[in-house]
Design a protein around this nucleic acid. Structure first.
Lengths: 363, 363
DNA sequence: TTGTACGCGTTATCAG
DNA sequence: CTGATAACGCGTACAA
């Protein structure tokens, strides 16, 4: 059943049917309703390939999850972000293709470029989390292929949505300092990830600005997984001068820290305070009482798609960089009263330049 | 850059270039290498839409995650399953399109059918987890559209991969009984999910066969989320006759149970033993010592794609139903020695008919 | 408002 | 082994 068949049944030309199907106003109401009836009766739906061939686009976006994320794909952050992308696609009537390739390996990137850009398989690409030496984004920028990164990209020619990871980390750390903790530690993600490094730097910013001797602040690197953080925390807490507070750059890692503290019979927050990052604890049992930076994972995905839609409809527009607001969710794990309260009616839109006094004072 | 351009540069016809690109043997080596060189030099890649239009297929599979799963999409089972699908697609040179629609709502199903089957957007569909009143699978079967369900489908005309949920649950429960626990409880998923019900029935099978009074076995329904299970477990454990052992039909829920026990100062396994389901604990801190049925989530996804590849290449073949082997992973939470051991060199290929004596005896 | 004619880039058929 | 030529199904100037 194709355009031709419908045209015959409705006794009009193919063009007219095409116009009806594409909501072209230049068709009389009488003809339109007649054609529409036939379309409904025959359950006709235009062939996607033929349409793509003619229009040169196909309403498909790709979502690339770099293969380096393979091991942390299980982190609840991803499902949320993916759902956001799906929301955005549904709203704009796009389909979403899932891609998992390396974004740093040259051969893999070439394969990807061929199959998407050159073969015109995709109208645009969303890259979740860029890596330090991401060769993909440079290639895409050079090819002038519509793409949006979720997470700050180091390439200025690129569009991206992100939260202000560095400011968020600094705020969390300053909050710990406001409780009076002085021996601090951070457990961050791998230094190859831009976002992970930003968070670690934010932690260091706060320590430095507080006037403390930076040497009292210990840095540990995790891999965003609960188990590794458990081991790191066990090590930290077993030392002769254990930290009084630990800033952990993901909730999944923070759970590992909480577990380590339990295992070592340390009280939280009296022996050691903890603040996490992600704010997805509602998934878990809320009684864990984990304080955290809550980032809008789902909204990040949705917004990325919206930006991509913009990009493909206004080709040649200059890259857009956008920061989404976040919340500091305070709970018992950092020493706040157990009843969870939400701070953050203030939006963090300017990276690394946030007057956070109001945040801390609000405590 | 298209076929025509390459043909001119190589001084051959379009047909010949097409043959070279598609590895058709009917072309001389001299011409082939010459064309191949041009192709490489010009970085040519065939247009996907044009190819789809001509061949009437596009090497794209859809992965449908029914919208009812939205709230449990964060369960680590999904990322694993998705990765398996990606593996399978990569191996067979297919792309994977992510779909999240309702599979029970009639309007949504119609939209889906239109956009995939009728518009020929997809070559096949994988449905993760079927629901009790799944209208989608019936429609697909009727349209004769190549599809594979992950999880037993009630429609016999359908192909699916699954584990033997019922037998697995029975084995887990029998293992608890073998430890001497008599007051049992089960916390299962929503009864609208086929797999969740199968697991609950397997639990009941074991109770019944043991000759115990079924009334001592309590059934609770969770939603596959940690928090809900925490609440259910808190309730169970606070009663005057708390269960000695709880079978929980997902690990995420089991963690909620463990947490509830901790909060109520109950010792595991002395006060209450626990066995979970999924076997994804390696993601989490292993010291939680959770015994579990380990199912091959990733392999399920991969196998589903393999079956779908078979289905599209041999159209009209009769539906295939396949069960994948599972393991009973014993740890401290059920009362076994803390050192984790793996049982299950036996493959569970026949549903509901497993001689499990060897399993239990192996303890 | 409607219809005609052509192009989109490949694959497939049929001669040679 | 190679080359015309016809589908594949739709969008769209252009003409009427």
């Amino acid at each position: 059943m194709n355009l031709e068949d419908i045209a015959k049944l409705a006794e009009v030309s193919r063009s007219t049917v095409s116009r009806v199907v594409n909501n072209d106003p230049r068709v009389s109401d009488g003809v339109r309703t007649r054609v529409l009836r036939i379309v409904a009766e025959t359950n006709y739906h235009p062939n996607a390939a033929a349409r793509s061939l003619a229009t040169r686009h196909n309403r498909i976006f790709g979502l690339l999850i770099p293969q380096a994320m393979n091991s942390i794909f299980g982190d609840p952050w991803f499902p949320h972000m993916i759902q956001g992308c799906m929301d955005g696609c549904r709203n704009a009537d796009y389909s979403l293709m899932l891609l998992m390739e390396s974004s740093t390996d040259h051969a893999a990137v070439n394969r990807l470029i061929e199959r998407t850009v050159r073969a015109r398989h995709l109208d645009g690409l969303i890259i979740s989390s860029s890596l330090k030496d991401d060769v993909l984004s440079h290639r895409l920028a050079r090819e002038n292929f519509p793409s949006v990164v979720i997470g700050r990209d180091t390439d200025e020619r690129f569009s991206f949505v992100d939260i202000d990871n560095r400011a968020a980390a600094r705020i969390a750390t300053e909050h710990l300092l406001s409780h009076g903790y002085r021996r601090l530690a951070v457990i961050s993600g791998p230094s190859t990830m831009v976002t992970a490094e930003d968070r670690r730097l934010g932690f260091l910013d706060a320590v430095e600005q507080s006037g403390l001797d930076p040497s009292v602040a210990q840095s540990r690197f995790g891999n965003y997984q609960e188990r590794e953080a458990f081991l790191q925390a066990t090590d930290l807490l077993s030392s002769s001068t254990p930290p009084e507070a630990i800033f952990v750059t993901s909730d999944s890692m923070a759970w590992g820290v909480l577990h380590a503290a339990r295992t070592l019979q340390r009280n939280i927050p009296n022996d050691v305070a903890v603040i996490g990052f992600d704010g997805i604890q509602q998934e878990r049992n809320q009684r864990e009482g984990l304080s955290s930076i809550r980032q809008p994972a789902r909204r990040l995905g949705e917004r990325a798609v919206e930006m991509l839609v913009d990009l493909v409809s206004n080709p040649g527009q200059s890259p857009v960089q956008e920061w989404l607001p976040i919340d500091l969710v305070l709970d018992s794990s950092c020493g706040c009263p157990a009843l969870p309260r939400v701070y953050g009616d203030r939006e963090f839109t300017t990276p690394y330049a946030l007057p956070i006094a109001s945040q801390v004072a609000a405590l």
